Computed example of a mutant assay.
Amino acid sequence: MQCDYFDAGACRSCTFMGIPYDVQLRRKQQDVQERLARVAPEVVWRSPFASPEAGFRNKAKLVVGGSPGALTLGILDREGRGVDLQGCGLYPHALSAAFGPVARWLERLQVPPYDVPRRRGELKHVLLTVSPDEELMLRLVLRSDRHLPRLRDALPRLLEELPSLVVVSVNLQPEHKAVLEGEHEVLLTEQEHLTMSIGGVPLHLRPGGFFQTNTAAAAALYETATGWVRDVAPRSVLDLYCGVGGFALHAARVLPAGTPVRGLEISAEAVAAARTTAAELGLAADFGTGDADAATADADLVVVNPPRRGIGALTQALERSSARHLVYSSCDVASLARDLADLPSWVAQEARLVDMFPQTGHHEVVVRLQRG
């Protein structure tokens, strides 16, 4: 993949840019195998999932810069000035085609962009997500609610120009800090979720909810884990850090009716979304709100999909539990290696690299373990 922004030095986020994709994938595979060799010496590596190297991102996190009449959507340079990246090749056409209409709509409203060095202004970020059906969710991160009435009044014009836009919200982040979003979300549309259909499972993403950035890679993760679930035929399943229920719902579809499948997630909104999908599909999967870090891990097969920090103290619960099978999906091989070292009674059987982020060194690794 070639990128004019990278070549011009305007954006260096893609650290592997210019390296042939097959070389990128080979390097990542070698890296994860070497870093897990000590803690998973018997693991069998499946063929890695190779993502499309361009147009793979389903979400755009665009910093708003510039000035009224000359907005930029992209990143900030070292001086805090806006660098426009609307032509970035990582976004599919269905997503990037919305950047222009959204930018022009904001220009007409004259909502001042937030000036980071001077700590003044209102509009901080434009967050756009596209579903597999090419529907869109737009979230605007603002410093305050002072422009909400104008945004509401002007929204019909944007919806007319972008008929694929089905969810619009405003997130309020009054603080000047690196945290992108605030705690308060204001919906501007009647529809509250974007449907991310993967493998016949309509996962419902609400504003602020987590979903994998690469839809094709997410499908590969679910397919891989579901195949393992089918192979081991567990008596029960517990999906920890379940989010909107992707792993649990896919598992419930391939297990015999009546097999207990539960999900646990700290976000009440994500749990509500998972329950909605289960009801739509007629699945008996059950979802609850709670801290996965403190779970008892009491099930025949446990799935963990933690944040980058890993599962930490949950390793002790897994050691004490009666679980026989474990599927661990990790976005950080360092924390994965640490956690596997803290699971001495478990043996890694199979693993797969899923290339979630081409053009960078980031990746996902999914591992199947069983009691030694």
Score class of each variant (00 low, 15 high):
A54I: 09
S51T: 11
L142E: 09
V39G: 12
S67L: 13
W45I: 09
E79K: 13
R119Y: 03
D84K: 11
R46K: 10
R118L: 14
R57C: 12
K28P: 03
P52Q: 14
E134T: 08
L140S: 02
Y91E: 04
G100H: 01
V116Y: 04
D31Y: 12
P68S: 09
L138F: 06
V23Q: 15
W105H: 02
D84N: 14
G100N: 01
D22P: 05
V116P: 02
G66A: 08
A60K: 08
V23D: 13
F16V: 03
K61C: 10
L151M: 14
D133V: 05
L106T: 07
G121D: 08
G66P: 05
L127H: 07
E134V: 03
Y91F: 15
A50K: 13
L128Q: 07
A54V: 11
E135N: 10
R38W: 09
Q24A: 07
P92M: 15
A154R: 06
D115E: 12
D133N: 08
R150G: 06
R146W: 05
V43C: 03
R81K: 14
E135P: 03
A70N: 13
P48E: 01
V32M: 02
T129V: 12
A60S: 10
S131C: 12
F49Q: 11
C14E: 08
A60N: 07
P112V: 14
L90G: 00
L95K: 03
R118Q: 14
Y114T: 07
L123F: 04
L106A: 07
Q110G: 10
H125F: 06
G87D: 05
D133S: 15
R78I: 05
F16N: 10
H93A: 15
C11N: 13
A97C: 10
G87Y: 00
V116F: 06
S51G: 12
N58V: 13
Y21M: 02
P132L: 04
F56L: 11
W105R: 04
L151V: 11
L25T: 07
P112L: 15
A154I: 04
V126K: 08
E134P: 02
L142M: 15
P48R: 00
P48F: 00
L127S: 08
Q33A: 14
V39D: 11
Q86G: 14
L138A: 07
V32D: 01
S51V: 13
P156W: 00
V43H: 03
Q30I: 06
L151D: 06
S51Y: 09
A98G: 03
R26F: 05
Q30H: 09
K61S: 09
V111A: 05
A70H: 10
W45M: 11
L128M: 13
L76F: 09
D153H: 12
L85D: 06
